[in-house]
Design a protein around this nucleic acid. Structure first.
Length: 118
RNA sequence: UAAAGCAAUCGAAUAAUCGCGCCUGAAUAAUUUUCAGGUGAGGAAAGUCCGUGCAUUCAAGGACAAACAGCCGGAGAAACUCCGGACGGCGUGAGCCGGUGGAAUAGUGCCACAGAAAAGAAGACUGCCGACGACUUUUAAAGUACGGGCGAUGGUGCAACGGUGAGUUAAGAGCUUCACCGGCGGUAUUGAGAAAUACCGGCCAGGUAAACCCCUGUUGAAUGCAAGGUUGAGUUGAGGGUUAUAAAGGUUGUCCGCCUACCUCAGAAAAAACCGCUGGAGAUUGAAAGUAAUUUCAAUACUAGACAGAUGAUUAUUUAGAAACAGAACACGGCUUAUGAGUUGCUUUAUUUU
RNA sequence: GUCGAAGUGGCGGAAUUGGUAGACGCGCACGAUUCAGGUUCGUGUGGUUAACGCCUUGAGGGUUCGAGUCCCUUCUUCGACA
């Protein structure tokens, strides 16, 4: 789990990120990217979403969110962020196909998505 | 030994590394950051099917209406709740299941098709009879397109106005004729009561109330913690703004006037903060009362409280090589549904041995 | 989290107080018309079976002689509240 300062919080911040319409997709996970940073010192905030339409049971949705958070944390720790720090906000949206994946698969997908950013 | 029934219990464990929410303490200007310590999801947290507390608004007297409940007794804050019993049904049995008031204390509706007739004791089908009256033939009697008597017979249907057998009769029929059975009412006894048992009676009364309805009982109504309360940055409007006692600046050099800062009041109010927010109709253990549900008393411990929303990842070992159903969002009592591998106790049936 | 509505052939959508489920339209198949296609007209069309029959209104029970309809439990879908 990421600490509070790295998390994307408000509803308006989420809608603002979606409105940019800059997205990447792989293996059931979609990555939405926000605008470029104006102040270089501010932190890049990350949000995780698995909607109720994806699956009905809360346990399986929480599981996917936790796997995505953990893999994101490890990426932050090891410095494999590539160009993601240029942007103000990132949102990972979990889909139906990602529900049954193991941790190593999810980690590879997220690593790949972060590499694609320019 | 096998197969069942009922009840209870458990709801993975240990170690290492990395990591998160909340609380406490220390450092710090600080609500930030760092360090240390503590603590962190269920038996159903679920479905939202019932019932409460709590909060706000309206009402507060009486009656009706409406909704809900519906064998009896008890428990409980209450409940489509629980316990014990009655009756009915299922099972060889241990046991299990039941929305179980009223259809002779009122009334209405419906019962398709078929059928004579579907609820008013009725006779238009198919039939039976010819005792009585009438008529015909004949005079011992026989017969019937008559007046009538009958409701047994046939077929229909979920259901045909008690059932089976005998007697009686012209033919027949519960026909206050008989035997047995079912149902109804009354009386007596037993029981706290539901009800049970016995006797007597009249002589039979269709089904449906999860159709309207009747009876008895209960309930103020509505909205749900996104309830609701407190503080309120910025903004808007009104008044004051050298004419009260402090008071700045702009518009042209001065004055008036106007505007702003500033002061007072009012409304509305965030992507803000705090309260509500977890110690309770509670849990465990023991004792007493009770068949039990439960109640009373005593002791013990109390350890989620988030707000894009905390329990995860990797490795190793073990049970069973890879553990089911499943995630708190104000709280509690039930019900219902989902659920892996086991463990324990009591009971029943069958088989074998002694 | 709270509240509300719906579920019927391949699709839309009927079925009045409980009484023969699938009207009607679209689609699909076959045939006719045409040199050919379209249009138009006719017939058929839930599943299973050789046929009779049996099963079927999201699923499972109940009440009833008889449930799409009445009652209970449950599943799925949709909507409202910010």
């Amino acid at each position: 789990m990421l600490k509070k300062q790295y998390r994307l919080k408000n509803k308006s911040a989420f809608t603002a990120t979606y409105r940019v319409k800059n997205s990447y997709h792989k293996g059931g996970i979609t990555l939405f990217v926000g605008l470029l940073k104006k102040d270089k010192n501010s932190l890049t905030k990350v949000g995780f979403v698995v909607s109720k339409k994806t699956h009905k049971r809360a346990v399986r949705r929480n599981r996917l969110k936790r796997l995505m958070r953990e893999s994101c944390r490890l990426a932050l720790k090891s410095g494999e962020l590539y160009n993601s720090q240029k942007y103000m906000s990132l949102i990972f949206v979990g889909g139906e196909h990602a529900l049954d994946k193991k941790f190593s698969e999810v980690r590879n997908i997220i690593k790949d998505l972060l590499q694609r950013l320019e």
